[in-house]
Write a protein that binds this DNA or RNA. Structure first.
Lengths: 156, 156
DNA sequence: GGATATTCCATAGTTTCCCATTGCCAGCCC
DNA sequence: GGGCTGGCAATGGGAAACTATGGAATATCC
């Protein structure tokens, strides 16, 4: 079961083509959960970052939402589905373990040239590292870890 | 289970002949579900937009409606069936992945020159993007995504 | 015939694929 | 221990393939 949790973190570059390497350890977890050839990216609920799941996630959420809104034929139900599915993307992972970050997702996460992967157990987050370290109330040890990754890149 | 959920979005142009490209990712889902050479378009129940699904979906909708209106022999029930099935169209997808938006559907969705495809999991919606962003109570992140797409098209 | 629709081909901009390079870490030998 | 070596992870670049879209050519209808 330890295989199936997203742990740890990584700071990777986004190149001119929008390509971004998914950390090998996360790819392994993705493979253990469903299919390592793709992942799901979506805007996070409460922060300007992205969340990533394995590709079995949409089916799960669909079942969940359909149960929750059974018999509900309201606009609220529709808007909820809109926010859930239309704003998410299925992103294929190439032979080298990379994905391409669409411009839509770049906008949502306010990305520049770096992307920080952060394990969250059942899923993971992808941050602009500068937004991450600027976040108030976050554990200072976490911030120091990222600060060190940034320093190792030679980027202030 | 391959991915059979409609995820993500796309903003495509409607040309002078009423031609409209169906996003490749949606065509893939259509193919995985039934037939990628056609789709069903219908007026949405609660908004001035269209809903689209694969050709196997009407059967599912019928089952759903019959359950929802079981034992209901009202005019409302009949009107609902009229709106659902009579107003729907089976639209062929051409070699280049395009459909023709009939003038009837153009009226229903109040389309101009752009069409926004929006994934809803089990189906998808097609909007006039301006109507979409003007919609109250919709997740602001979804609206921002569309706003960015509109900006990328230049001020149209 | 004229207008409306349908099929076919052309193209520009991306995206995808493939291969090369770099750097890191582990293990190993001397 | 120091340095060699092999494997893997991350990244860069070029070329092929594909998407979205425009226009021309052909068919269809009144």
């Amino acid at each position: 079961m330890t295989d199936e949790s997203f742990l740890g973190n990584a700071l990777n570059g986004i190149d001119a083509k929008g390509r971004l390497s998914v950390p090998a350890s996360f790819r392994e977890v993705l493979g253990a959960r469903s299919d390592s050839r793709a992942l799901i990216l979506a805007p996070a609920e409460r922060a300007d970052c992205l969340v990533g799941y394995d590709s079995s996630y949409p089916a799960k959420v669909r079942a969940e939402l359909e149960a929750r809104f059974a018999g509900d034929y309201s606009n609220a139900r529709d808007d909820h589905f809109r926010a859930t599915f239309g704003a998410a993307e299925r992103v294929p992972i190439d032979e080298n373990g990379r994905i391409i970050v669409s411009s839509a997702m770049k906008g949502v996460g306010d990305f520049d040239r770096l992307a920080l992967f952060w394990g969250m157990g059942d899923y993971f987050e992808v941050w602009n590292p500068l937004q991450f370290v600027a976040r108030p109330n976050l554990d200072p040890r976490a911030i120091r870890i990222v600060q060190r990754l940034l320093d190792a890149r030679g980027t202030a």
